[in-house]
Simulated scan of single mutants.
Amino acid sequence: MDIRFESREVLKDKPQGALGFGKYYTDYMFIADYDKDQGGWHDARIVPFGPIEMDPASMVLHYAQETFEGLKAYRTKDGKIQLFRPEKNAQRFANSNARLSMPAVPEDLFIGAIEELVKVEKDWVPAKEGESLYIRPYMFASEAAVGVHPAVSYKFMIILSPVGAYYPEGMAPVKIWVEDEYVRAAPGGTGFTKCGGNYAGSLKAQEKAEEHGYTQVLWLDGVHRKYVEEVGSMNVMFLIDGEIWTAPTEGTVLPGVTRDSILQIVRSLGYPVHEEHLAVDDLMAAARDGRLQEAFGTGTAAVISPIGELCYKGEKAVINNFETGKLTQQLYDTLTGIQWGDVEDPYGWTRTVCEA
């Protein structure tokens, strides 16, 4: 699909100092429209970043047909801008859309639009260590109608944001609250998708965790309130007796791109991996007995976030003396090294967009 370009007269000043996460946005954004009666996707364009006009009856505002993705562009030391496994994001985006009765964005359109926008905005890709250009593709129902049915028109958009660390703690361990009152997902629901409703429904538990002095929530399964699933905006893994445990992706856990990458790396390092249900009582027992050696979350935004403490029903378990574990640090260094082009990519995960 041809992409039309509309230039802006004055470019923004690039941010100086600490970037934070999601605070700044680049000069341009991508938009494409979908209309069922016009044959599908059309009018792909890169336009100046700014407000969009929406009908008050746009169906996304009433029935929440909305999906999104998250990935990053990285500036390498040898002068390249590269992506990390964008085809995995394209596939997950298609799966999310299918669950919400939304049309698929073809993989060539998804990746092609990202590459073209990143090329235009290559000067926004940060050069400092640990910084990158966050890419947010998303799609929503734009049809103006009040009535519960799949919309016939949609917008697919991409915005870009230069970012630093997702958590203020950076690679320092975080404290996690094990949530046993609220539920994130249940079998047959939308837990495996990246849709806004999943995150809106998690906010009350997040507030609860923060009130108790914890950074994030560890969710339990929605049926038994017994098995560990994921941590807020991340998948979660535990090193117990020298073996990795993480929840299976059976419909209630997001199939994370970082999760998949880390599992491939730990297997290559010789660690046994259990993608199995792990009871929170067994997890806490392992912590009491000293068998829980390390714990960490994985996700595009934070990459890897070490967990230093769990709190479940008033019991607190400190992990690895509240220090970043050796394996956790090794995985972070390996994955970020591949992403920034500092170490060899034996998996073929990176994709060069352009020369910086």
Rank of each mutant, 00 (worst) to 15 (best):
T328V: 09
E66Y: 06
D345P: 03
V353Y: 12
L310H: 01
E309A: 13
D55Q: 12
C311T: 14
T190F: 07
V60F: 09
R4G: 03
T246G: 06
A200S: 01
A18G: 00
S153P: 10
T298G: 12
M171S: 08
S305V: 10
V120A: 13
G348S: 08
I81M: 04
A32P: 01
E181R: 06
A185T: 01
L117F: 13
S161I: 00
D2C: 00
S142N: 01
D333T: 07
W177K: 01
I159Y: 05
P15A: 15
H149N: 11
M1Y: 05
M29I: 12
P137H: 11
I265M: 15
V236C: 01
G22Y: 07
D13L: 14
M59Q: 07
F156D: 03
M171Y: 07
E129Y: 14
I304M: 07
L331I: 10
P48D: 12
A301L: 03
E344K: 15
G170W: 02
W177I: 04
N198S: 04
M29N: 04
V178E: 07
H212E: 14
A205T: 01
C311Y: 05
A301E: 00
K12N: 14
F30E: 12
I111L: 12
A279C: 02
K204Y: 08
I338Y: 03
E250Y: 09
Y271S: 14
F84P: 11
L218N: 03
P106V: 07
E309Q: 14
G191E: 01
T328Q: 04
D27F: 10
A98S: 09
K313S: 12
I262C: 04
T324M: 08
Y28A: 13
T76D: 03
L109A: 07
A94I: 10
R288N: 14
G17C: 10
V280D: 02
T324K: 02
V236P: 06
H274V: 05
A295P: 04
V105T: 03
R45A: 13
L310D: 00
Y28D: 13
F49S: 07
T215Q: 14
P51T: 11
M1H: 05
G348I: 03
W245K: 11
E115A: 09
F156Q: 09
T252W: 09
F93L: 13
N320D: 05
F68S: 02
E211Y: 03
K175H: 08
V152H: 12
Y24A: 09
D289C: 05
K326D: 12
A287Q: 05
S142V: 12
M1F: 11
D27Y: 08
A172F: 01
Y332G: 08
V273N: 09
T298V: 11
K175M: 02
G213A: 06
E179T: 08
E181Q: 04
T298N: 07
K119A: 14
Y227K: 10
T298S: 15
W124P: 08
D43M: 02
V148D: 05
E121C: 13
E323D: 13
A151W: 01
E143S: 10
A151Q: 02
T252M: 10
F49R: 07
D282A: 11
